[in-house]
Design a protein around this nucleic acid. Structure first.
Lengths: 206, 206
DNA sequence: CGCTAATGTGAGAATTTGCTCACATCCAAC
DNA sequence: GTTGGATGTGAGCAAATTCTCACATTAGCG
């Protein structure tokens, strides 16, 4: 029995170029619709319509609606994760305060680009909460950030670094997401990064 | 023309006691289902079923599925808001640090009780984002919290209090919501309140 | 009791959803 | 050019969903 066949695995791997284009159109359409109107609005027929392909083509490559979403999440997690990982490694030797400011700024960028997918899908669809809960950029990068903090362990006054990291992670992401969600923000990117970084730095070192 | 008739307004106001009970059953059922299985699972038939009333009764009092949800949101906003407002007024003269710790603790309680409704509905259903975006407990209480901070203006080093409040609000709520969402938290209530309060206090006063 | 309005019922109409399948078209290799 | 597999199509099925409506039941009141 092939019980191990991932239920989200693509049905067919595109081999010709036009097939690749089809798959890409579907993913892009799905992402656009979900970002703009939410998961509910992303019916398979609508996705196929926006993608400019027939519903049949859609089901040729994706076994179910959820498989499309799973592909989106996976893509976002991988890309955002990899990008942040590289960024962090480059900054590994930066001074604590400057490093934190850069990291927060970078996180804002990444959340702006991929955040909607994470937020919408991870929270709207309970089913995906577990996926992104385990794979969310932050957890994926736990080790890297942990390493950065350990690098500056002597400057950090907080006793329990693990607990602090949990709080910090959600403090930062919470503020960034709220800022991005806000239609009429009372501050701009630079100010947000400044304030959030300040809070993090003070929390860790004072 | 009655164009101003709220699209979420109840169709009929219950007058007899059994009708009140019916309405209440519907709201309770809807709330339970949404909290446990999310918005998608709360089909009108299912809600009526769980409530123990017929689908016809449901539509006698609520013009649409969204009207039920709107009623839930409104109720949560009002109750949570009023509760927090009273709490804050009582604490208005508390010392800054102690006051903040109590406020964060209170916010954790309130979010635990009503947060699922806010989070699920506000984020899952784009349509309700605007409602709760304007009515969310925090904004509703903006003035009260602002007054508390002004009470301690001399201890607070942050220059722009409005900006700081925006950041703080989402910092705190972000961390609390993440904590409540987390299935296997690495800290407990007291520790969370302690850490979050610490961050707030340091951010404001150092 | 008898009457009326309030309340409750649930089959099913109308629509939407995810998804299939029989068929048409395209491409690459010989 | 022919052939076979890869790709694309869209009518339409089955199930689910929102909501209506004609009717049944109940409560309150003279």
């Amino acid at each position: 029995m092939k019980a191990n066949q991932n239920q989200f695995a693509p049905r067919k791997v595109p081999q010709q170029e036009r097939a690749l284009f089809t798959v890409d159109s579907i993913l892009t359409a799905a992402r656009t619709i979900i970002e703009q109107k939410g998961y509910e609005a992303a019916s398979t027929n609508h996705v196929a319509d926006v993608a400019g392909v027939s519903i049949g083509s859609l089901y040729q490559y994706f076994p179910s609606k959820e498989a499309i979403v799973a592909a989106l999440v996976e893509d976002a997690v991988l890309k955002a994760g990899e990008r942040t990982r590289k960024f962090l490694i480059e900054r590994m030797d930066a001074p604590l305060a400057a490093g934190i400011r850069e990291i927060v700024g970078h996180l804002l960028e990444v959340r702006r680009e991929y955040g909607l997918i994470f937020r919408r899908l991870a929270r709207e669809v309970p089913r995906f909460r577990s996926i992104s809960g385990q794979l969310t950029t932050e957890k994926y990068l736990y080790n890297t950030i942990h390493a950065f903090y350990r690098q500056h362990r002597d400057e950090i006054l907080v006793e329990d670094l693990e607990t602090a990291m949990f709080v910090l992670e959600h403090l930062v992401v919470g503020a960034i997401d709220a800022y991005l969600d806000n239609d009429a923000p009372i501050l701009n990117d630079a100010e947000l990064v400044q304030q959030v970084s300040d809070a993090v730095i003070k929390y860790l070192t004072k």
